[in-house]
Amino acid sequence: MNTPLIFNIQRFSIHDGGGIRTIVFFKGCPLHCPWCSNPEGISTKPQLIRNNNRCIQCSAEDAYHCTNTPDNCPVNALTCCGQEYTVDQLVKEIASDQIIYDEDNGGVTFSGGEPFLFPEFLEQLLSRIRPWTNSIAVETCGNVPFENIEKALPYVDLYLYDLKIMDEEKFRDVCGGNLSIVISNLENLVSLHKNVIPRIPLIPTFTDDVENIDRIAQLSLKLGLKQVHLLPFHQMGSGKYENMGMPYTLSELRPFTDDQISAVVSRLESGGLQVITGGF
């Protein structure tokens, strides 16, 4: 069984699905979108994070030059990203907030990275938590074999399904993905499950052109989907690139103005879609 590393378990998440949720982030993604706000989720391997904000210069001038290990850094300026869990351990972690997220439409969200890179592990996990979990959601990029998605079908209440660049070649060049797989998986999924919401990262020069937006709208409407989430560009994840020694290539891009976002929302709405900006 392909076992994932987990890079974060975020409790009390209140903006990624209904109610209060625990989000489990799987490490590893088939794509490498340059705007990704969780770049630590791209590689499947453990990685060293150097958070200089925490550094007290006990052994070096800063965290970037430090030769300590995460174990002997006294302030956790050096940490290892990506931890192994057994299904049992993860069930226990997820269950720890159950009494709190049980209300309303709260529950658990699997995110990443890409949870469907680990279908057997995910299926075992889902079958264990399904009996007592109010709501289970999965965030996916869709760029995986459909059988990976299919395995989880009986257990999932909601799919948050990314639609990014609708040009085959550009999607491959920028994100490293295969658009026809993403689209055919979405078509299949929608035919088998009623609760799928496309999520559109709105990124200047990458996904914000009228043609791209229209193609997402057309596909969504064709599949009978009613709602999409629009996630406007931000640079909140840029610090993480620095901490991981990864280049961040989008620092020149400017965030959208409210008017620009409204224009995109109107365009999507004019086709008959309901748009939620920023997710739940």
Binding site: I14, L231, H234, G278, G279
Partner: peptide, 12 residues
């Protein structure tokens, strides 16, 4: 933060 929440002190 935006698509996620974080500890304030952990942000740059």
């Amino acid at each position: 933060v935006a698509g996620y929440s974080a500890l304030f002190v952990d942000l740059n």
